[in-house]
Nucleic acid binder design. Structure first.
Lengths: 207, 207
DNA sequence: TTAATAGTGTCTGTTAGACACTATTGT
DNA sequence: ACAATAGTGTCTAACAGACACTATTAA
């Protein structure tokens, strides 16, 4: 039985909502190939490392981001779109929540979030990955409660509704939305209210 | 950037419906570890081979089966449940249609289909894979028309209904089922009818 | 008091599910 | 004629979607 040794890489699409827009993390390449172009964060995986852990560790080291959710998109073997001929690669996507601050890493122009409506040309086949990740994110939203990973621990129903409206690019009726999520999502009303708002404060909820 | 070389393997759950039962292909191991135990078919992938193609090629070579549908389940890196310490492995599932004959390979007791209700203990972590594949198969049925891969090219509505009843383990009302699939599945009535049946023959349909 | 958003209920159209009889073929 | 399965329509209950007003807070 053949036991070829292969290089395995991970490419990741990291989503975050900034100023009511869905954004994706892109990196400016400092080395060949495609030097100077934008692409998604990626790396080769080492032995003795699970994929999810590697994703979180590498992302923290390189971008100072701690992702709250990681999932797989797809795996490929040997489709020669990459000049370095990576043998096997894994596409993933991740979500970063509201509370992560855009501090140190943000001053490096090399790494920045970019609104999905204005994604630049991406090197490698990264545009395909982005599209697949975006589809997957939208479909996962309907089956499963990923919204929580975009939100802070305590949030108002309006914030929750906004997440859905941003991801799916639709407008909901407030009453219908609340009926819907009451029957679908395991969220609890807390005894706290939002503050520092110039209007009647809403109740805070948590998952 | 680390560029460790890893062995990549594929484990696959192959589904087929035999005598109105959902079955999975299991193999009896001839070599250590777990010699004599049953497990799922698996192999290491070689460079210059896409995963889907490798799956079809290897399965044909080893079991004489030509699968009509292949999909991915999950990818893992380094979880040391395997005595040989495979580094990265890919879980997949596949479907074999009605018309594939159980010929040559079936005489080898080493390779056989086993009803999902009577799966024996499987070596490695293959029982987990089987369970995940079964879940995925059921959920894919609701989103997407995989039923066609279980069926011959021309089929009656009753055969189609049976597939759904077997996979989901439910009973449908014939009229409601037909209304449902008429609105969901792109199937066409042909001008042919089934034959060699001791009752009124049904119309044949195709996808 | 005003500006701004929170919070709440009803009605209606569509969809999913229960249910029974006639039609056609082989023997 | 009989055995066996194909094929077909209606009624009802549940759910999804449209829709407008009162409540509470900060300034």
């Amino acid at each position: 039985m053949p036991q070829d040794l292969l290089r395995v890489s991970v490419d990741i699409v990291i989503f975050k909502i900034i100023e009511n827009q869905l954004c994706v993390l892109v990196v400016k390449r400092a080395t060949a190939p495609f030097i100077g172009q934008r692409c998604l964060p990626w790396w080769f995986i080492k032995e003795n490392e699970t994929i999810d852990d590697a994703a979180k560790r590498v992302l923290f080291k390189e971008t100072w981001l701690w992702v709250s959710y990681v999932n797989q998109l797809w795996v490929f073997a040997r489709v020669d779109r990459d000049p370095r001929r990576r043998a096997v690669w894994i596409w993933m996507y991740a979500v970063v929540d509201y509370e992560v601050r855009l501090s140190a890493w943000n001053t490096q122009a090399a790494t920045q979030f970019c609104a999905v409506s204005a994604i630049p040309h991406l090197a490698f086949d990264h545009h395909d990955i982005f599209l697949k990740a975006y589809d997957k994110l939208k479909s996962d939203f309907s089956h499963w409660d990923i919204a929580q990973y975009f939100l802070p621990k305590y949030f108002t129903l309006w914030q929750l509704q906004l997440i859905y409206e941003i991801i799916w690019w639709v407008i909901y009726d407030k009453r219908n939305f609340r009926k819907l999520i009451a029957s679908k999502l395991p969220i609890k009303k807390t005894s706290k209210k939002e503050f520092d708002v110039p209007h009647r404060p809403g109740w805070l909820y948590k998952f």
